[in-house]
Design a protein around this nucleic acid. Structure first.
Length: 541
RNA sequence: GUCCCGCUCGUCUAGGCCGGCCUAGGACACCAGAUUUUCAUUCUGGGAACACGGGUUCGAAUCCCGUGCGGGAUACCA
């Protein structure tokens, strides 16, 4: 292994005394840079870190790596924080919650990095590099031309005092580079990949501090992982090579190395890197389209980890009970939107009806399918309407487009037109059925008060439900509506299925949807009669 | 190019570390059927995989080597 250079004792000490209570606690972190919105890959990394921390009874922190000042955006930061909260990943330390090891923005820890830089420089682990980017590039090209590995050519690694003075006199602003060992193997233990070995000659003298004084990722990361007492690092595979650079610096400083786990990237359908074509780049898009967050969490967690051999739906608690960092997969996973949707639909079907209404409400209101006031005036009606679609939607955002017909007379879509035009006698049937309903004690239509009926009948009514007679109830419930409609069809010698089609079309404007008797109940007398008559005439002309 | 990592049904995966329990299990998707007033849900059944080639072994999806393919890194981005 490496022979660390002697390190000068340093005063003040590099690290403040860590709080006692965290000495032995597992500490994990998610450390995104606010240069872009949080995407699925980032969310998964966050989930795994969070899960290890929670499973081990440790602490989970959020650290913002904002050292690339040119590319940071406020919006990206906002999306990261909102996105993590939305998916149910909460942090014990970090932005907006504080903590004992802050600050949690790297841009606010510059003095700390400067101190480390000084020590590293004094100890000879770092050196000033005066080369311009062009010169570095030229050196790289030269190495490449010589058939060697294209990397920084280490031209300033061993500058004499005079050479340095000359560069200073020229006004060159130096960057600080890490003096990497020139030969030997470095072996790293990775919880997912096992033993990984690399020839250190493959690693170049990386820049720690830019000429403007900003630290670079690898440098700030080591300082912070150490200062924040991070014990386990779960991060993307793209950092596997960085782990060697970091570990070498950890050893040089005689700091305790965290345990590493490098998770593979999430790939698109084609097996290539995830792109906007495959998936949304911004996790909040899923929130805005009404994907249930628990389902998204569940699905993402499954992309590279499995709960058990025969189950893939599980709660956060169940996950924490058996999550182990070592069980994360080494192979990359392809993202599958269909399975995500199936998972979402499953979660929605498991929700209680009141919870579903609450979850779906913002979309219903936003898209104008249901006026806000109706939630207060007609809670039973809304709940019944929503419940009728519980097994027909995968996302909350799917609902408004489907149940608009409940409160507003709908236009006919193509399927409905076909259903209406199929039988020449349909207009007659509709008119006659409208007359029948008019004389029937159906619940009244919205906006009349119909709470009594909606409270007494929970839709959708199961096939084999046993109901009191209509006159005992005082109104027709779906089973009565069904019995009446069947009798009506039989009397007139109409095949039941042939009657149902145009009635459904006239009532809902489409050829899909809840059971027809639930529909009639939901709509109430006036709306049913009006719609049936309207389409009886329009169908004739 | 070089270095690193990976490879079980179309997809996510169980199994692999501790070889025989695997005629390879589950889920999504697909196909067929049942239920049915549509759509959906639900239920039943079906097709579908150990990348390839060598070893080691009585025996390999499981261990070893090579090949192929995929991914990552090779930045004064993270």
């Amino acid at each position: 292994m490496l022979d660390p250079l002697p390190l000068a004792p340093c005063d003040p000490p590099l690290r403040d005394d860590p709080p006692i209570d965290t000495m032995d606690t597992p500490r994990l972190r998610f450390a995104p840079s606010p240069t872009g919105p949080l995407h699925l890959g980032g969310a998964r990394t966050a989930i795994y870190n969070w899960a290890v921390a929670r499973a081990l009874g440790g602490r989970f922190l959020l650290r913002i790596e904002d050292t690339d000042t040119a590319r940071n955006t406020e919006d990206a930061l906002r999306i990261i924080l909102e996105g993590l909260r939305w998916i149910g990943v909460d942090w014990d330390e970090g932005p907006e919650v504080g903590g004992t090891h802050g600050p949690y923005f790297q841009s606010e820890r510059l003095a700390l990095y400067a101190r480390y830089a000084e020590v590293l420089l004094a100890a000879g682990h770092a050196y000033k590099c005066y080369a311009t980017p062009e010169e570095v590039e030229a050196g790289r090209a030269r190495l490449l031309a010589e058939g060697k590995k294209g990397m920084y050519d280490r031209r300033d690694r061993d500058l004499t005092a005079e050479q340095r003075a000359r560069h200073e006199a020229e006004g060159r602003a130096p960057s600080l580079r890490y003096r990497m060992p020139l030969e030997g193997k470095f072996v790293l233990q990775d919880a997912i990949r096992g033993t990984v070995e690399v020839d250190v000659a493959e690693l170049d003298d990386w820049v720690m501090v830019r000429p403007d004084g900003m630290p670079t990722y690898n440098f700030a990361c080591v300082v912070d992982d150490s200062e924040m007492k991070i014990t386990h690092v779960v991060r993307g595979e793209e950092h596997l090579m960085n782990a060697f650079k970091q570990a070498i610096m950890f050893e040089a400083l005689d700091l305790e190395l965290p345990r590493y786990a490098h998770v593979p990237l999430i790939l698109g359908k084609d097996g290539k890197k995830l792109s906007k074509r495959d998936v949304s780049t911004n996790i909040l898009d899923y929130r805005d389209k009404g994907y249930p967050p628990d389902a998204v969490f569940n699905y993402i967690a499954l992309l590279g980890w499995s709960f058990s051999g025969d189950r893939d739906v599980f709660s956060r608690e169940e996950m924490l009970a058996r999550f182990r960092m070592e069980d994360i997969h080494a192979a990359g996973a392809k993202f599958d939107e269909e399975k995500l949707l199936a998972m979402c639909g499953h979660y929605i079907r498991q929700m209680g009806r009141a919870d579903l209404v609450a979850a779906v409400r913002p979309w219903l209101v936003r898209d104008g399918a249901v006026p806000e006031a109706a939630f207060a005036s007609h809670p039973g009606l809304i709940e019944n309407a929503v419940a009728c679609y519980q097994e027909r939607i995968d996302r909350y955002g799917d609902l408004p487009g489907k149940l608009g017909w409940v409160l507003v007379d709908p236009e006919l879509d193509d399927g409905a037109k076909k259903g209406l035009a199929k039988h020449a006698d349909a207009p007659q049937w509709l008119r006659a059925y409208a007359d029948l309903l008019e004389a029937t004690p159906l619940p009244p239509s919205f906006p009349a008060d119909r709470e009594r009926c909606d409270r007494a009948v929970a839709l959708p009514v199961p096939k084999d439900a046993v109901f009191p007679a209509a006159d005992q109830l005082g109104f027709f419930a779906p089973p009565h509506i069904e019995a009446q409609m069947r009798a009506f069809a039989e009397e007139r010698g109409i095949k039941f299925g042939h009657l149902v089609q145009p009635v459904r079309a006239a009532l809902t404007g489409t050829d899909k949807g809840p059971g027809l008797f639930d529909v009639v109940f939901l709509l109430g007398k006036e709306a049913c009669v009006r719609r049936l008559r309207r389409h009886a005439t329009s169908a004739r002309s």
